[in-house]
Simulated assay, not measured.
Amino acid sequence: MAINIDDPEADALTRTFARMAGLSISEAIVTAMKEAIDRRRNREEPLETARPNGELDRIASGTSRSRSFLAGEAVAAYVDRELEIIDGIKRGIADAAGRLVPHEEAMAEIFDVIRKAETGKGDKV
């Protein structure tokens, strides 16, 4: 059975691919279709990639929830956890305000103590 390509873009793409691959028009169509079908068959969905052992399906089945619902719940839990971490860091920074010493100042004091110890002029530790 013959294939008739009436679409100018499809015709141009097929001819370009045939030239690039060194194929006849028919071979180019067959090759392109095989590659497209193979890509679709082997395409991993994000949820499948995340849990390849069917764990998400087990949870969905056991809870009567959809995989997309569970994925949404997981994202919400992740966001909540990350926001708690960020808030904790901000609280810690605010709590330490006024009690922190800049790095340069701390290092200057350390070097001063070392210098005094080396010259014998510092307090015994």
Score class of each variant (00 low, 15 high):
1 M>P: 07
1 M>Y: 05
5 I>Y: 09
6 D>W: 08
6 D>E: 15
7 D>V: 12
9 E>T: 14
9 E>V: 15
10 A>K: 05
10 A>L: 15
11 D>I: 03
13 L>C: 07
13 L>D: 10
13 L>M: 12
13 L>F: 09
14 T>L: 15
17 F>R: 10
17 F>V: 11
19 R>I: 07
19 R>N: 12
19 R>Y: 02
20 M>C: 02
22 G>D: 10
23 L>T: 00
26 S>M: 03
26 S>H: 08
28 A>H: 07
29 I>Y: 01
30 V>T: 12
32 A>M: 15
33 M>C: 05
35 E>V: 03
36 A>D: 03
37 I>A: 13
37 I>V: 15
37 I>F: 08
38 D>R: 08
38 D>A: 11
38 D>P: 01
40 R>E: 12
41 R>G: 02
42 N>D: 13
43 R>K: 10
43 R>D: 09
43 R>A: 15
43 R>E: 14
43 R>P: 01
44 E>W: 08
44 E>F: 02
47 L>S: 12
47 L>T: 09
48 E>C: 00
49 T>E: 15
50 A>C: 04
51 R>V: 09
54 G>K: 03
55 E>V: 02
55 E>M: 06
56 L>D: 04
57 D>S: 09
57 D>T: 10
58 R>S: 06
60 A>V: 07
61 S>M: 04
61 S>N: 13
63 T>I: 00
63 T>G: 00
64 S>R: 12
64 S>V: 00
65 R>N: 05
67 R>T: 11
67 R>E: 14
68 S>G: 01
69 F>K: 05
69 F>S: 10
72 G>D: 11
72 G>F: 07
72 G>L: 10
73 E>L: 14
73 E>K: 07
75 V>W: 09
76 A>S: 11
76 A>F: 03
78 Y>W: 11
79 V>C: 00
79 V>G: 00
80 D>R: 13
80 D>F: 03
80 D>G: 05
81 R>N: 06
82 E>A: 15
83 L>P: 00
83 L>G: 00
84 E>R: 09
85 I>Y: 08
89 I>P: 00
91 R>A: 14
91 R>D: 12
92 G>Q: 05
93 I>F: 09
93 I>Q: 06
94 A>F: 05
94 A>Y: 03
95 D>I: 05
96 A>T: 02
96 A>E: 03
97 A>T: 10
97 A>S: 11
98 G>H: 09
99 R>D: 15
102 P>M: 03
102 P>L: 02
103 H>K: 09
104 E>G: 14
104 E>L: 08
105 E>M: 08
105 E>V: 15
107 M>A: 04
108 A>T: 14
108 A>Y: 06
109 E>V: 07
109 E>N: 02
110 I>T: 10
110 I>A: 10
110 I>M: 06
110 I>Y: 08
112 D>G: 14
113 V>A: 13
113 V>F: 13
113 V>H: 08
113 V>E: 12
114 I>M: 10
117 A>I: 01
118 E>D: 10
118 E>S: 04
119 T>W: 04
119 T>N: 13
120 G>A: 06
120 G>I: 04
121 K>F: 02
121 K>W: 01
121 K>H: 02
122 G>N: 04
123 D>Y: 02
123 D>G: 01
123 D>V: 02
123 D>H: 04
124 K>W: 04
125 V>L: 14
125 V>I: 14
125 V>S: 03
